[in-house]
Computed example of a mutant assay.
Amino acid sequence: MPQAIAYGISVLAGTAGSITVGMLVAAYAITLVGTLALSSYQKRKAERAARAQFDAAQVDRLANVPATVAPRELVLGRVRKGGHVFFRTSVGQYKELFIMCMAVAAHEIDAIENVYFNDQPVDLNANGQVTTAPYGQSATLDGTDVLSGATSTLSHTPNTGSVKVTREFPGGIGVTEVTGFTVDGNVVTITEEFLAGRIYRAFYQYPGFNSFARIRFHYGAPGQQADPELVAMLPGVWTNDHRASGVAYIVCHFAYNDTAFPSGIPNVTVLMRGAKIADPRDGVTRWTENPALMMRHVMLHPQFGKRTSLTAAEDARIIAAANACDTPIDYGAGAVAMYRAASVIPFGSA
């Protein structure tokens, strides 16, 4: 009997030892699997956070952020975006003209194709004046020209029947109305005696428009000159040293008008062609929507990339990818490149 009990105890001890080892192995396996799962979860969480941050940046890019100190942005491809408002002021006797400078990229860009006020595209004339209603409105304007001789050309074509001509001595004394004249288009001819030593003036009305908004572009070339109008309008505030070198920005003028701006200053965005990118296929630096060339630009960018140069083999692979991206494809409205891209990347982003 005692022998049987001893044998049973030894069997149980051996079994317990095996169970202990098995439990240790199982515990280690569970710990390893848990660690790997946690690591995978943390990685997915970081990726989701990065995607969410990127997606938020794409939504927020249509907003204008007032900030004198703000992250700079790399803009690639064709993008519609707002920017950072780094300067604001009002001028005029009653502060009726509001001026705003908004940075849209931290580098030279290729072009600005369109301007939007509150998501509405607006048209600009050669002087940058907005001609789209309600920011530009048709109006009857007054004109005054000094006539150079018996036959003179007015600065504008007058409305029918609106021309009045006066004659005066120098100094504005002895002003009389001239009744003998004809108007053909914008040419005025005095039909009565044209008296030497007199000043003849034509007063008239002509069709035009009043613009309450004006936009000027600066494309961010290195060493670009300071905005000459701001230098003239803001002496001592905006000087020739305020060049914003290497920063693409727009200057917005808004004249006070209840009809044009019933809800205040509009949100301004631009449709722009971003950075000019070097193409290793021909050595030319130009604007492009080619994703492969964009990645090469990012790799070599001092704020993003880890490289200062690429090997011939690396460039060969990029060239092959760029050629594949440029493969033409026609969706029914003309051939376009098969792969195109655009992005806005804050400096310092991974």
Rank of each mutant, 00 (worst) to 15 (best):
Ala103Gln: 04
Tyr116Arg: 12
Ile112Met: 14
Asp60Lys: 14
Lys81Tyr: 03
Leu124Ser: 07
Ala103His: 02
Asp145Lys: 05
Lys81His: 02
Gln53Met: 12
Thr89His: 11
Ile99Gln: 04
Arg72Val: 04
Thr140Trp: 12
Val69Trp: 05
Leu147Thr: 01
Glu96Gln: 15
Glu168Thr: 11
Arg61Val: 11
Gln137Gly: 05
Leu62Gln: 11
Gln58Thr: 15
His84Lys: 14
His84Cys: 14
His84Asp: 15
Val59Ala: 07
Met102Glu: 15
Arg51Lys: 14
Asn118Leu: 05
Arg61Met: 12
Glu168Cys: 08
Ser162Gly: 00
Pro170Tyr: 07
Val104Gly: 02
Lys45Ser: 15
Arg61Ala: 09
His84Ala: 15
Ser155Ala: 07
Asp110Gly: 06
Ala105Thr: 00
Gly83Asn: 10
Ala103Gly: 06
His84Glu: 11
Ile99His: 09
Ala150Met: 04
Tyr94Met: 11
Leu141Ile: 01
Ala52Pro: 10
Val165Ile: 05
Asn127Ile: 06
Asp110Ile: 06
Ile112Lys: 13
Gly83Tyr: 03
Asp55Val: 06
Ala49Asn: 15
Val130Lys: 00
Leu76Val: 07
Thr160Leu: 09
Ala37Met: 08
Glu168Trp: 09
Ser148Asn: 08
Pro170Ile: 05
Pro134Thr: 04
Val104Asp: 03
Gln129Gly: 09
Asn118Ala: 07
Leu124Thr: 05
Thr151Gly: 03
Val165Thr: 00
Tyr94His: 11
Ala126Tyr: 09
Pro158Arg: 00
Gly136Ile: 02
Pro134Asn: 10
Thr89Trp: 07
Val75Ile: 08
Arg48Phe: 06
Arg167Asp: 03
Ile109Arg: 00
Pro134Ala: 15
Val130Ala: 01
Glu96Asp: 12
Ala56Lys: 14
Gln93Asp: 08
Leu38Cys: 06
Phe86Asn: 07
Asn114Phe: 07
Lys81Phe: 08
Ile112Ala: 10
Ser162Tyr: 03
Thr68Ser: 15
Thr151Phe: 00
Glu108Ile: 00
Asp119Gly: 05
Leu97Gln: 08
Thr132Gly: 13
Pro121Asn: 04
Val69Lys: 15
Val69Asp: 11
Thr153Ile: 00
Val165Arg: 01
Phe98Arg: 13
Phe169Leu: 12
Ala46Lys: 12
Gly77Asn: 06
Gln137Tyr: 03
Gly77Arg: 03
His84Gln: 13
Lys43Phe: 10
Phe117Asn: 03
Phe86His: 04
Gly149Ala: 07
Glu113Val: 13
Ala103Cys: 00
Leu124Ala: 10
Thr160Cys: 02
Val130Asn: 01
Pro134Glu: 04
Gln120Lys: 06
Leu97Tyr: 14
Tyr135Thr: 09
Cys101Val: 07
Ala56Cys: 10
Leu141His: 02
Val75Asp: 04
Ala103Glu: 02
His107Phe: 06
Asp60Ser: 13
Val59Gly: 13
Glu96Cys: 15
Pro66Ser: 12
Asp119Thr: 13
Tyr116Pro: 03
Ala106Met: 04
Tyr41Thr: 10
Gly83Phe: 01
Gly83Glu: 01
Val79Phe: 08
Cys101Ala: 13
Ser39Glu: 13
Tyr135Leu: 08
Pro134Ile: 06
Thr153Ser: 03
Ala105His: 04
Asn64Cys: 09
Gly171Pro: 00
Leu97Phe: 11
Val69Gln: 12
